[in-house]
Design a protein around this nucleic acid. Structure first.
Lengths: 236, 236, 236, 236
DNA sequence: AATGAATGAGTGTTCATTCAT
DNA sequence: AATGAATGAACACTCATTCAT
């Protein structure tokens, strides 16, 4: 049930032009929002940054919040695009997961400012736009759900189906956490360490030993035996 | 090096009264901030909600941002107080962790709106207040660090010391996640399920099995062999 | 027709106390007014400077403007007192004038800040108080009128009676000018030079030669002979 | 080193319009300032008087103090322009002086309210604007310095060069005095009388007779002998 | 299609004054 | 007589939005 992008009305007839101008608006606004926040950025500043007049800007949007929506949507789209790059249809669920998680975290790192922006300003969106943006977030999350399901199906990941949604959310949050907790995390970890440790945490949670004798060894993971799994009464 | 609370100057001499009125301000403001956000709440609205005049309110604060600081600090203090309740000095690290995590998540659930508020409005604090608030957040986080360290010491948790910081952060975020992702999570899980599943994820990551031979391959994981586990230098 | 001091009502019965507290108020306010100006000084600041509460202060005045009135009146009284010191009942008008002018200018120099204050803030007084203050100013001015008249009478000053008022005003202004033009004057002159030059200007304007042969030498004055007087067709 | 006018930034791009609107602001504000003083005049009142909205007014200025600066500068400019009208390049220094003084006093009389305004409100200007305004005042004053110097050069005025600055200041103040002492002066003198008497005072101070021996004694003058005149080092 | 001047409701904040204690 | 907490009208200034050109 992918909801379609909320269309923003424009006075301008030529759709190509609308598209182009809106890209300019996004480019101009995003850095201002990152630097000063949505509320402390004025429409005049945005227009100036875009290189056209305030009147012209208002030909392509209706309210200041439209700009925020445009920006959030753009960031989400970029995020989705970049995340999709990492999905390898051929690979096992587990390999896919490991790769996608690492890729996801790296994207988060690169787009740190923008992810943070979404985090902090999404709440300022008008209701309808908010719904759309959250829906988009869920779509991205569902990419991880697909991967997890594949891993369950191909036996490379051990996970209750009922936990799929949660784990996908968890992965998303782990990525975002690298941005909104950077003030704390970066004191102790760099990106690669972060990727390794969080991946390990996930895999231990998701990789079930095969039982009996464990040909396992979540090596690199806090050593954990089959037994560990057993008593995992309340395990995932 | 716990930084001390930034004192907000007041025109009023009676400290008892200052204390009381500021509590009123917090009580009045917090719901407005939750409902409308900091920027869209007016100082006049806050004063009205508190039941006194705008002039009176300004006898107890200096700027609108002081109100935000008061509110954030109050929430943090409550959070810290409630979290400390759960720590049982007698119990093992592991039991303590399980109990503290569950407790933490329940507190987060109860204080959902307030946690969310902190999440969304912290960035609007003036620099100095922001530093203080983040410092407080770290203090709370360190409660989990203590627990984890105890678990390492008493052997009930298996975790590299270098991962303690990360795990503590992770636990904090998991709790907050229940608030800022509630729009997604509550569709599929209730609080108790959430507690169970997340605890499981953590424990699997932290509980060491007693041994066994492992034929494994943390495929996809940054290549590491069984041996790697043993000396698990930089592992979790 | 000396108008009597406008009485400021007070809640307090004991007149001694009223007198004492008002002196405190003047002492506290005057420096604040000098430093920040009347409008930018708050009643709270005044009370704090005086060492008592705002409530107490308002027991002794009715409005903030009363404080200004108190201050202006006090300065004027001091000015008058000091100027009177210089008047020598025995001396000739001319000697008296020279001495009084020098004394006046020195007083102005010492009380520079206060004179300036009167100059700049008098206009903020309520109508009635303004009238009183201006009247006081005229009384002071009339001290010079007396001296000039005496000089006419004893023949040491040559001046049309109709010019007495103007010259007295002129002398007053010359004194004040040393305060409100100090930004320019002090670049080129010190107080003693100023006194000498202005006195010379006045005396030349006021001193009539005895005619015929002049054994003169308005030494120190732009050399001027008896002839100068002659062509003084348009003289004062 | 004439300092250039401090430019006030404006949001409006069309400089012609800025010029025009600022003239409107000056016209609207000046009478209000004269009537009520700067501090008691509201920005809204100014805007209303100008015939546009408060928002529009703020497109052309940055702060209320800018309006004061605009007004002061305008008055000064007008003053300077009118004073220059009176300077006759051909005439002797003395004639020039007589004419310029009379003209200056007449201008002061006509612009009485505005001169008074400058006198009373200049101190409310922000530091930089104050510096500029004072500098302009000095430029105007220097017009009189020029005239005096010419008079010295062509022998029509007898004045020590070191007194030129003072006399120019004195002339300026005499003009302003007609405005800020009008409450006293107009009781006894009309403008023409004032001009005549003050001119006489000045000329006596400045006009040198052709010689002759004088038995005089500027008694009371800082003791100086005839000889003193001759070497009259520091004399006027 | 583009401009940018105009708008005015709304904002955070101040401060002279009052009055119950 | 002294206090100081309470008041709220008033203030300077901002800024999203409109609309005539």
């Amino acid at each position: 049930m992918p909801q379609h992008r909320k269309p923003i009305p424009s006075e301008i007839k030529n759709p190509k032009l609308v598209e182009e101008r809106r890209r300019q608006i996004i480019r101009g606004a995003v850095d201002l929002f990152v630097r000063k926040g949505f509320h402390k950025t004025t429409t005049r500043e945005i227009a100036r940054e875009c290189g056209f007049s305030i009147g012209t800007m208002y030909e392509y949007i209706q309210t200041k919040e439209d700009v925020l929506y445009l920006v959030c949507d753009d960031i989400h789209t970029e995020l989705e695009k970049r995340l999709k790059e990492a999905v390898d249809e051929e690979a096992t669920g587990r390999d896919n997961l490991v790769r996608a998680v690492a890729h996801h975290f790296r994207v988060m790192d690169e787009m740190s400012d923008y992810v943070l922006l979404i985090y902090q300003e999404t709440k300022s969106l008008p209701k309808e736009a908010l719904r759309y943006v959250l829906q988009k977030e869920e779509e991205i999350t569902s990419l991880f759900e697909r991967i997890l399901e594949k891993g369950i199906a191909d036996g490379t990941l051990h996970l209750e189906p009922s936990s799929v949604k949660l784990m996908a959310q968890q992965i998303m949050v782990m990525g975002q956490m690298w941005t909104f907790r950077r003030w704390a995390l970066r004191k102790y970890y760099n990106l690669e360490e972060y990727i390794r440790l969080q991946t390990a945490l996930l895999l231990r949670g998701l990789t079930t030993p095969t039982g009996g004798d464990c040909h396992d060894g979540n090596r690199g993971l806090p050593s954990q035996t089959c037994g560990a799994v057993r008593d995992g009464g309340q395990s995932v």
